[in-house]
């Protein structure tokens, strides 16, 4: 009887264990089911690379949004990645471990702050600064990039810290024993050993930046035009979905789901990439 109960427990747990993967499949299924028809009807090329987005006229070209998403994401990476990696190195290598133990939770707290709050601070503090000192409307690609750059800091720092922390102490001691300064040990030995983890952190952070919605919607402005400068306002892929979903029907709604498909594919590619890199590290170790 006990053996039977055990078998039953195992079966039930197996079903439960499939919940995550089935959710993923369900999500993919419905997003694609809603989103692909219009892409097929319009032709993928026209959908991705034409610049007219006029739902009332039945024109759905998402090129400006793709460009806006790319600019915002790249800008965020330029700001967030160096700061984050620098922080991870500093906390791991140049201060006592107790400092890391206190600061790391504090930085993870930064990840817990709702994205709408980041967005609001962007609107109230950052946008006026940009408007007054650099010109333009203030609500802009630059503002969105800065806010997103701050928002991805915890991801970068947290994963990079783990990667650097996982480098065996013997590497450090080996380098230092050869007469290297701490910094030489870091940039010659430790960064090389932790490279895959750091790259993975950047890729995952990129995924977060592309996918972020609420902060961007508030800070980037709301112009569906091809941006020419970082001081232009713009609308990203995610922002378009969030903006128009409430009022969209018919083909317009299909087009928004099609944007969802594009996002989904980008994120999947980035994640698979990061997974492969991280797995490569664990199998080599």
């Amino acid at each position: 009887m006990k053996a039977r109960a055990e078998k039953l427990a195992q079966r039930i747990l197996l079903v439960i264990a499939l919940s995550a993967i089935s959710s993923l499949i369900l999500i993919a299924l419905f997003i694609f089911k809603e989103g692909t028809p219009i892409m097929v009807k319009m032709g993928l090329r026209r959908f991705l690379f034409s610049s007219e987005w006029e739902p009332q006229a039945g024109l759905f070209g998402i090129y400006p949004m793709i460009v806006a998403s790319l600019w915002v994401t790249l800008g965020a990476m330029l700001i967030g990645a160096p700061l984050g990696i620098a922080g991870a190195i500093f906390l791991n290598e140049f201060v006592p471990k107790t400092v890391l133990r206190i600061v790391k939770p504090a930085i993870e707290l930064l990840a817990g702050i709702p994205s709408v709050v980041y967005g609001f601070i962007g609107v109230m503090v950052l946008a006026p600064l940009i408007r007054n000192h650099l010109g333009g409307p203030g609500l802009s690609i630059l503002a969105a990039a800065v806010i997103l750059g701050v928002m991805i800091l915890p991801t970068v720092i947290s994963i990079s810290t783990d990667a650097i922390g996982a480098v065996p102490n013997s590497y450090r001691e080996g380098a230092l024993a050869l007469g290297a300064t701490r910094w030489q040990a870091v940039h010659m030995v430790i960064l090389k050993a932790a490279r895959s983890g750091i790259i993975a952190s950047i890729i995952l952070a990129m995924g977060r930046a592309i996918g972020e919605t609420m902060a961007v919607i508030m800070v980037a402005g709301n112009t569906v035009k091809l941006p020419h400068s970082v001081l232009n306002s713009a609308r990203t892929l995610t922002a378009t979905i969030a903006f128009e979903m409430a009022s969209a029907t018919g083909r317009h709604r299909e087009a928004l789901f099609a944007i969802g498909v594009v996002l989904f594919v980008i994120i999947m590619l980035l994640n698979s990439f990061a997974t492969v890199i991280l797995r490569g590290r664990t199998t080599r170790a």
Binding site: I27, G207, L263
Partner: peptide
């Protein structure tokens, strides 16, 4: 993969 999906997709 599920962990990486942006919240707007969950919303959709």
């Amino acid at each position: 993969c599920l962990a990486g999906i942006p919240s707007i997709i969950f919303g959709l």
